[in-house]
Design a protein around this nucleic acid. Structure first.
Length: 274
DNA sequence: AACTGTTACAACCGCGCGGGA
DNA sequence: TTCCCGCGCGGTTGTAACAGT
């Protein structure tokens, strides 16, 4: 049942890597480059799973990795990006040269979480830790809002996935994903769920913006109404906004609908894409 | 010195996605 | 269109190192 194992576990080493294994891996990648992780262990003479090799290389052996403590600037950047993206560690890592997603994830769990709590902030929502009464009020307010989806609620810049598979898991960050957790994390998540098409006649955007949403793009009319967040301003790809495009190709467009992005951020009033 | 509890982080696991056959 | 494979991601676990008693 399920998928076949990624490697033959009986003949693979597990646990900590030895110096010799590291050397073999480094030497192989220097000679042949990255890629083909599945076949790499055999070719490199390693008794390791390909995934394990990839992880070791990505998180520990890569020459461009920055070791050592995180600076205060990095701390703040991580907090900021986490507020925008949630637990998208790879996206966050993309903004911190020399840092890996695993490293940031660990650092978040061991340091920053505590730091935020000590500041009186909820590390998941980045909002002030509320009293039980305030939480109850928020829950009640959310319940009302959910019951009346056309009410206008303020959009937080947290990740939104306005595609048809906007599951609770995806919306509120893989924390076990139930609607209730959703609400816990985004108590006043402000989605305008009314039936409307994205505002295509909003303030002129530059060519780059237009290339993201071609003027003759087919209108999205088949997506279930309740799952389409709409914006008072033109939505742009959040990756683009954060500058990820300059580093690597943005792949946050969903394949099923090239005009739908995994992460959205509305343009602020008077803001245009350069 | 010995034991126990805590912290930090490397590594593993399972799942989803995209591309190719 | 469907299936399979490889890759990458996020969550979790294991354990070494450290601190406190």
């Amino acid at each position: 049942m399920g998928r076949s194992p990624c490697c033959e576990k009986a003949h693979t080493n597990k646990g900590a890597w030895t110096k010799e294994e590291d050397q073999r891996l480094i030497a192989y990648i220097k000679a042949h480059g990255e890629g083909c992780w599945r076949s790499l262990p055999k070719a490199a003479g390693l008794l390791r799973c390909g995934k394990s090799c990839r992880l070791r290389w990505m998180n520990y052996l890569r020459p461009d990795l920055k070791r050592g403590n995180f600076t205060d600037e990095e701390d703040e950047l991580i907090i900021k990006l986490h507020g925008l993206l949630g637990n998208k560690w790879s996206l966050i890592a993309g903004q911190l040269p020399g840092r890996t997603d695993n490293e940031i994830k660990n650092y978040w769990n061991t340091h920053i979480k505590r730091k935020l709590i000590s500041r009186g902030l909820d590390p998941q929502t980045h909002r002030p830790l509320s009293t039980a009464a305030a939480a109850a009020t928020a829950t009640a307010a959310t319940a009302i809002a959910v019951a009346t989806p056309s009410l206008h609620r303020e959009v937080t810049p947290m990740e939104l996935k306005p595609s048809t598979d906007l599951s609770t898991e995806d919306c509120c960050q893989h924390s076990g994903g139930t609607a209730n957790l959703d609400e816990d994390r985004c108590p006043d998540l402000n989605l305008d769920l009314s039936i409307s098409l994205p505002n295509c006649s909003s303030p002129k955007t530059s060519a780059s913006s237009e290339s993201l949403t071609p003027p003759n793009a087919p209108q999205e009319v088949t997506t279930p109404i309740s799952l389409i967040p709409t914006y008072s301003t033109t939505p742009i790809c959040l990756c683009y906004h954060l500058g990820f495009q300059s580093k690597k190709p943005c792949n946050c467009q969903t394949s099923k609908n090239p005009h739908v992005f995994r992460y959205y951020r509305p343009l602020e009033e008077g803001q245009y894409i350069e």
